[in-house]
Design a protein around this nucleic acid. Structure first.
Lengths: 148, 148
DNA sequence: GCGGCATAAATGCGTGTGCAATGATTTAGC
DNA sequence: GCTAAATCATTGCACACGCATTTATGCCGC
């Protein structure tokens, strides 16, 4: 087995670790957020992403990228959140094909409730993963990533 | 903002990075594997996990953990692969509640076809992610994880 | 200005998923 | 030994997703 094969195997190994940790965390977040504040992980991701945006508005397409969702799924996701009054659609003034989504006041309130649930569950999930030998290195690497 | 708040924010940040990279890679793998060998990412994961197992057999529950899938989804996933002749169900001799799944010869053959697609797509996806400032640190960290 | 092409978002349709309940088998209590 | 609780896998049901198609708008050449 040569150097190139090693590289391939190392990449695959890294991906398996990433996928396993992601799956573990997402499963726990899904359960906790659903039972706690009736939000799925993607729904939380959307609200969170909007809250981090200047003026709290984003285009559908950006939302799709932020959540790795297809355009159709993005449309329906925004539908659900809009029907619950958590965000509103706003037509773009400059490009009338585009649609902005904005967090409403109830949306911000629900997000405020959801954040502690999210944080605590994330901490718990990471600490569980920390005890699995194959996941521990990635868990330890995560906090070191964005130190500037 | 105190030290505890910093820790929370760093965890959340790490999770967002992890989720974003995972979503990007999985989307590309999904497209490539589906169009190339007609396998979804989870289906590939199952075949790959089985091939790494001693005697090429695993219990349903292990499969569920390996794929972060619910028991019901695992059942149907195995159904699909069994109907395509890629694996077979084998009753456990010692515990007759349990069911082993084993890779068939066609299953191994399809996996052999799928591996290069998986590897090349993974390499491409990682190199794309490498160009995104918020993902680059994680991409660079991955290969360093399991160096013993 | 106008026809043709590109882009943003929405809809029809088939399919994969999780939760809750069920069936089958093992394990524990006595 | 026999019943009760626990465990492994499966099924009914509702729902979220992706792909392909459609509608609406913007952009370009002439």
């Amino acid at each position: 087995m040569g150097i190139a094969d090693d590289a391939v195997e190392i990449r695959s190994q890294g991906w398996r670790t990433l996928a396993a940790l992601h799956g573990l965390i997402e499963s726990e977040l899904e359960r906790a957020l659903t039972s706690g504040v009736n939000l799925s992980v993607v729904e939380y991701t959307v609200l969170d992403a909007l809250s981090r945006q200047h003026g709290w508005h984003m285009r559908m397409q950006q939302l799709g990228r932020a959540t790795a969702l297809s355009p159709s799924a993005t449309t329906r996701l925004v539908n659900r959140l809009e029907e619950r009054g958590l965000l509103t659609r706003v037509l773009c003034a400059d490009d009338r094909r585009g649609i902005y989504t904005e967090l409403t006041e109830p949306g911000q309130a629900l997000l405020a409730d959801a954040r502690p649930v999210h944080e605590q569950t994330l901490e718990r999930a990471l600490s569980e993963a920390r005890d699995m030998p194959e996941l521990a290195p990635l868990v330890d690497a995560l906090p070191t990533l964005n130190r500037e």
